[in-house]
Amino acid sequence: MATEEHGSGLQIHPMDQFVVKPLFGDGPIEWYTPTNVTLWMGIAVVAMIALLVLSTRRRAIVPSRGQSVAELFYGFIHKMVEDVAGHEGLKFFPYIMTLFMFVFLSNMLGLIPMSFTTTSHIAVTAVLALLVFLTVTLVGLYRKGLGFLSMFWVSSAPLVLRPILAVIELISYFVRPLSHSIRLGGNLMAGHAVIKVFAGFAGAMGIASVVPIAAIAAIYGLETLVAAVQAYVFTILTCVYLRDAVGDAHH
């Protein structure tokens, strides 16, 4: 792609920002090598601790600003779990809060220029989605036994249609982790790549580059929204899936 464009100045590598590099040296990437993935996940952990632990250390009845934010997150996710997954789902509140905080903070940290967006990698989102999938399936089977499988046998449909619906439900159930992970990773990857493409335009256009720079500013705002909404959607879908496992009656 870039072979013939060396002289023209229009070299856009929108995917370079997603490259996983070792932090130290240039060696091969083993499973234990500290990489930029490690760095930015560590920053996410630090941010989480600052946001939820340090800000609440005074345990004030009248909260400070930081504590208000922490309580806002807590109340938001707590209410979501209770509303969507039901009262039984509250046992999984720390688990869902973990997913939400990780996804939200990674998305937000990824918006910092020159940073690395861990949640834009399919490897990361696929593991998150598979964790949710396995949790829901195992919890559902454990709590309801074979009754969990009645989810696929739509008893409100005519008998003739039920096998067909069962196949469709089964497929849609197993597509869940795929769509769950691709949605998050794809959204972030797309947004960051688009910003990079526009940045490449800006480098090549001289004085007219105000146009792509303005566009980048606008897209950046949109991406901030997307980062928050995707974390929200990931979490609420986890709650929706969890409702199948712990809720009373599915139909």
Partner: peptide, 16 residues
């Protein structure tokens, strides 16, 4: 696509 560079997957999954 760096996302499909499977050699980095164990690393990412471990740290995740």
């Amino acid at each position: 696509m760096p996302q499909l560079d499977f050699s980095t997957w164990p690393n990412q999954i471990f740290w995740l």
